[in-house]
């Protein structure tokens, strides 16, 4: 599903974010990416959906060769990846269902399919009743569910989440985590960067620890391993 071979990333300002990262993530896996702030986690995540380009090394995501991917082919890659952010990235002027449908509208899906899929994913994240609410009428946890629904609507092979519970209280974080667990059970690969020690330690999933731009640990049923 995702493969990196000796990936280096140096930013134009000279900052070295990654130094020779090699990793392989298989279909259906659930992987936590942990590590101190500024250790390269975000870069590691951003390379997967080609927000950043590797300076060196090769990356394959769902069959796409990222470092050779042409600018105008990037949309094709992103249609097969759902991305979830700490700040939700919802459009404040659109309703919940419009925000979710947005992801299908921009790829010109047929109206009927958009309507059907929107209802399906709203049901999955448990927000069918809030379909016509605006984002600022919802709680943080509900907003994150909306953004997860949007990430899911394309039926992506993999969901990449960058600190999805970073802005949420512990109880809500658990709800969100259970939702990811459910999505993963249905066969979607999940890669999640997180600082949430309790969740990582309880869920017992694969843990990748990024430190100083390298993979410091890669454990099957790992733990968080840092003091918060």
């Amino acid at each position: 599903m995702i493969e990196m071979h000796d990936v280096w990333k140096t930013y134009p300002n000279g900052a070295v974010a990654l130094q020779g990262v090699s990793v392989r993530i298989d279909k259906g896996e659930f992987v936590y990416v942990v590590g101190p702030s500024g250790a390269g986690k975000s870069t590691f995540i951003k390379l997967m959906y080609r927000e950043e380009r590797p300076s060196q090394g090769s990356i394959f995501v769902n069959g796409f060769n990222i470092e050779r991917l042409k600018e105008r082919k990037i949309p094709l890659l992103r249609r097969q990846i759902g991305v979830v952010f700490q700040d939700f990235k919802l459009l404040p002027t659109l309703t919940v269902s419009e925000n979710i449908a947005f992801a299908l509208e921009v790829i010109e899906a047929p109206k009927k399919k958009i309507k059907q899929r929107t209802a399906e994913v709203l049901e999955l994240v448990g927000l069918s009743e809030k379909a016509s609410a605006l984002p600022n009428e919802l709680s943080g946890g509900q907003q994150q569910r909306v953004s997860i629904a949007r990430a899911l609507i394309n039926n992506p092979a993999v969901i990449i989440a960058d600190e999805p519970t970073g802005n949420l209280d512990p109880e809500t974080s658990w709800d969100i985590m259970n939702l990811f667990e459910e999505i993963n059970r249905r066969g979607t690969t999940i890669v999640m960067a997180t600082h949430n020690k309790e969740i990582v330690n309880t869920m017992k999933k694969r843990v990748l620890a990024v430190e100083g731009g390298r993979i410091a640990r890669d454990e099957r049923r790992g733990v968080y391993g840092y003091e918060n």
Binding site: I74, P75, L76, R79, K89, A103
Partner: peptide, 16 residues
């Protein structure tokens, strides 16, 4: 620009 960023992230083409 926020809207554009989201459009790009969900796979909209530049021409769209």
């Amino acid at each position: 620009r926020r809207e554009i960023e989201i459009m790009k992230l969900v796979g909209a083409t530049n021409w769209f």
